[in-house]
Amino acid sequence: IKTESTVFPENKITNAVAEITIKDDLVSVFFEKNEDFRKIIKGLGYVWSGSSWGKKIEETTGAAKERAAELGNALLNAGFPIMILEEKILRNAIEGNFEPECTNWIYRRIGKDLLAINWKGYNDKLYQKARSLPGAKWDSPSVVVNVAHYNEVEEFADLYNFKFTEDAKKLINEYKEQIQKVEVVKPAKVEKEEQKDGLEKILESSDEILDDLKD
């Protein structure tokens, strides 16, 4: 079974096989000590557990099958043979048929009406664009924006390929419901009376008096 689930890339650099296993909440890979392999794994967010490398599956990682196919594809392209027991995932790894992991996310800041913008690694362009949003400020490790500016945040997300967590979506929907209940009024406009120049009036009166005396 293992042989049938193993593939060698055309450009293989070793006969040693990286064994990838999948659970709903974890993708693991076992391989001998190799620096090139380690760089690939760490770049994809895998952590050493003492016996293998693993990636915990969460809302922001995408499904385990997607991450396993992405991992397999990266290793194959680097020349490492792989083994995946699930045939469909193995085929997806070979064919590059998976949704790449999104590392740009907008969260809800716990306990506050704030949207927290996060991305992986250093990116000054994203930082500057995020900070240009109304009322945005840096609150490590995120740029935070009040939910009142959700329209601008949604436009930012569309432009720069960010996704919203379910909690962030919930906060936005809650805010929309709240503002729908707020009374909309048309305030009366009070015209300000033009300020008269009292001194000018006095001087005009004085001139009139002087003219009368001349007569």
Rank of each mutant, 00 (worst) to 15 (best):
K2V: 11
V7P: 00
F8A: 03
I13K: 12
I13L: 09
E19P: 00
E19T: 12
T21E: 09
I22Y: 06
I22A: 04
D24H: 07
D24Y: 07
V27S: 04
F31V: 05
K33H: 11
N34Y: 10
F37P: 01
F37I: 08
R38W: 06
I40W: 08
I40C: 06
G43D: 07
G43W: 14
G45Y: 14
W48L: 09
S49N: 11
S52N: 12
W53K: 04
G54D: 12
I57M: 14
I57C: 05
E58T: 15
E59R: 10
E59S: 09
T60R: 11
T61H: 08
G62W: 14
A64C: 08
K65I: 15
K65H: 13
K65T: 15
E66F: 11
R67D: 04
A69H: 07
A69I: 12
A69M: 08
E70S: 10
G72F: 13
G72Q: 07
N73L: 08
A74H: 13
A74G: 01
L75M: 05
N77H: 10
F80C: 02
I82Y: 06
I84T: 03
E86K: 13
K88Q: 13
I89Y: 06
L90P: 03
A93R: 03
I94M: 11
E95C: 02
G96L: 12
G96Q: 07
F98G: 03
E99D: 06
N104Y: 08
W105N: 02
I106D: 03
I106E: 01
R108H: 14
R109V: 12
I110W: 05
I110M: 02
K112F: 14
L114C: 01
L115D: 04
L115G: 05
I117V: 13
I117D: 00
W119A: 02
W119E: 04
W119D: 03
K120C: 03
G121R: 09
G121Y: 09
D124P: 00
K125G: 00
L126H: 03
Q128L: 05
A130Q: 01
R131N: 05
L133D: 02
L133R: 01
P134G: 09
P134Y: 05
G135F: 12
A136Y: 05
A136T: 04
K137P: 00
W138A: 06
D139W: 11
S140N: 10
S140M: 09
S142Q: 06
S142C: 11
V143G: 04
V144H: 04
A148L: 08
H149Q: 06
Y150Q: 01
N151D: 06
E152D: 14
V153Q: 05
N161S: 14
F162G: 02
F162V: 03
F164M: 05
F164Y: 10
E166W: 07
E166G: 00
K170F: 13
N173L: 14
E174Y: 05
Y175D: 00
Y175T: 04
Y175R: 09
K176L: 13
E177C: 03
Q178E: 14
I179T: 06
Q180W: 04
Q180D: 13
Q180T: 10
V182H: 00
V185D: 04
P187H: 07
V190G: 00
E191M: 08
E191T: 11
K192V: 15
E193A: 14
E194K: 15
Q195A: 13
Q195I: 15
K201V: 13
I202W: 13
I202L: 12
E204S: 11
S205N: 13
S206Y: 13
I209P: 00
L210I: 15
D211C: 01
D212G: 01
D215W: 10
